[in-house]
Write a protein that binds this DNA or RNA. Structure first.
Length: 425
RNA sequence: GGAGAGAUGGCCGAGUCGGCUGAAGGCGCUCGCCUGCUAAGCGAGUGUAGGGUCAAAAGCUCUACCGAGGGUUCGAAUCCCUCUCUCUCCGCCA
């Protein structure tokens, strides 16, 4: 959510931002609502002042055993008027905040203006793609022939876009989760948390998934509980409504959770393999920082995520998303795209964003500087560190051998009883 | 699932038959004084949000907030209803 005062004074900048994000949205209803809101607020507050002073007078008259029925009758009228105005006000308020919650964040000045992923800007490449003297296969073929990935049975027990992992496949997924958490906690200073895998709607409004992207979520019937689409939601909301001390910043959290996404609107896309599932595992990195350091924190968050790929020896590139491709809540986003030789393409494996104070305002996460009385909003950041399923995909495709086996990257072997190679059992 | 108890400011805790209680008292914290140092003592201050005023900030001022929402009333932390959460006991259960 944007700052109300900023919206009032910068309607033109917001209009330009909406164009940059390729959104069709008219701001005038919001500004009209704001004026109306303040008009009604002023009137109702004046009446409440009148009522409060009269109340004291009535109280005094009663103590003096004087008749106060005239004043009481008068206030009866005033109170009715207040009640009516209060109802108007809360209706306007509701409409107003509903609108405000639909306005996306302002992109950082360093973000390139563009329409879609073709306008994203390449930041860097790391490593080199492996070479093969045979045709590298896509991971679903590798996984199925090794007997470690089973899409057919997952479809039987649940449906499309689910996977059943067997044996070394399941173990590899688990090894990756543990490896990632170990690196982030022991080397990057993050505190590990294990949050609930369901959250309420308030939390989802806090991070920006609601109210606009309801159709992307799985909701429990008859309850205000949603399956988490990412650990970003519960973890960012850890400090919702709190005022932190300056010394407590930055806070660094890492969490493993499964993620559940309805993938509405992506019918027919990535139907094969693990790339686009309704349920996938992810290790997430979340930071709460002071405003003046948040862009440094974004850079280090990105490099924390990169470390995992480097340790695994996987070639990747980093792009900065353009205005048209960036998420609703983000000010700036880097995507890390890993090389997948089986599909001859780069695929997103991590997305690292600075949300500045956009989520903090929605979730009401503040801090107080030492010796200051004013509170300020923190900046929130998060990034995948990494998407586990896609990492497993990358390992299968990059480490496949001519004989159909897959070599285990050395850093993972301690987590897999020193297994060096995955072969068909 | 059944029965009961509770939710007040950073924390503890008081609020009588509804009426100067944004909220006593204590602790903590901040500033000042005092004091070889520390401790103690003395004095003052110490919530959040929104509106108005102001070029802006400061200041001044108003409104709201005693778990959340609604109701009764001229007036609600105090009375009534609904919900949420916490705790205790019983039942069930990984």
């Amino acid at each position: 959510m944007l700052d109300l005062k900023f919206v009032r004074d910068n309607a033109d900048r917001i209009t330009r931002m909406l164009q940059d994000r390729r959104l069709d949205m008219d701001l005038t209803p919001l500004l009209d609502l704001d004026q109306k809101r303040r008009r009604v607020l002023k009137e109702v507050e004046e009446l409440k002042y009148l009522r409060n002073t009269a109340s004291e007078e009535i109280s005094r008259l009663k103590r003096e055993k004087t008749d106060a029925s005239d004043r009481i009758e008068e206030m009866r009228q005033v109170s009715q008027r207040i009640k009516a105005l209060d109802q108007d006000l809360s209706a306007v308020d509701q409409e107003f905040s509903d609108f405000l919650l639909l306005i996306p964040n302002m992109p950082h000045e360093s973000v390139p203006v563009g329409s879609d992923e073709n306008d994203n800007r390449l930041v860097k490449k790391w490593g080199t793609p492996p070479t093969f003297d045979f045709d590298p296969k896509p991971h679903w073929e590798i996984g199925e022939s090794l007997g470690i990935l089973d899409f057919e049975r997952a479809a039987k027990m649940t449906g499309a876009r689910f996977a059943l992992y067997w044996g070394m496949g399941a173990a590899l997924e688990r090894a990756l989760i543990t490896f990632m958490l170990d690196v982030h906690t022991s080397r990057h200073g993050y505190t590990e948390v294990l949050p609930p895998f369901m959250v309420n709607s308030t939390s989802l409004v806090g991070t920006g998934q609601l109210p606009k992207f309801k159709e992307d979520l799985f909701k429990l019937e008859g309850r205000d509980y949603y399956l988490v689409p990412t650990a970003e939601v519960p973890v960012t909301n850890i400090h919702a409504g709190e005022i932190l001390d300056e010394e407590q910043l930055p806070r660094l959290y890492t969490a493993f959770t499964p993620c559940f996404r309805s993938e509405a609107g992506s019918y027919g896309k990535d139907t094969r393999g693990l790339i686009r599932q309704h349920q996938f595992n992810k290790v997430e990195l979340v930071k709460l920082s002071r405003p003046e350091t948040s862009y440094q924190e974004l850079e280090s968050l990105l490099s924390n995520a990169e470390t995992i790929l480097q340790e695994l020896g996987l070639h990747y590139r980093v792009v900065v998303l353009c205005t048209g491709d960036m998420g609703f809540s983000a000010s700036k986003t880097y995507d890390i795209e890993v090389w997948l030789p089986g599909q001859n393409t780069y695929r997103e494996i991590s997305s690292c964003s600075n949300f500045e104070d956009f989520q903090a305002r929605r979730a009401n996460i503040r801090f107080r500087r030492k010796g200051q009385s004013k509170t300020e909003l923190v900046h929130t950041l998060n990034g995948s560190g990494l998407a586990v399923g896609r990492t497993l995909v990358a390992i299968l495709e990059n480490y496949q051998q001519p004989d159909g086996t897959v070599v285990v990257p050395p850093v993972l072997r301690p987590y897999l009883s020193n297994t060096e190679k995955i072969a068909k059992v």
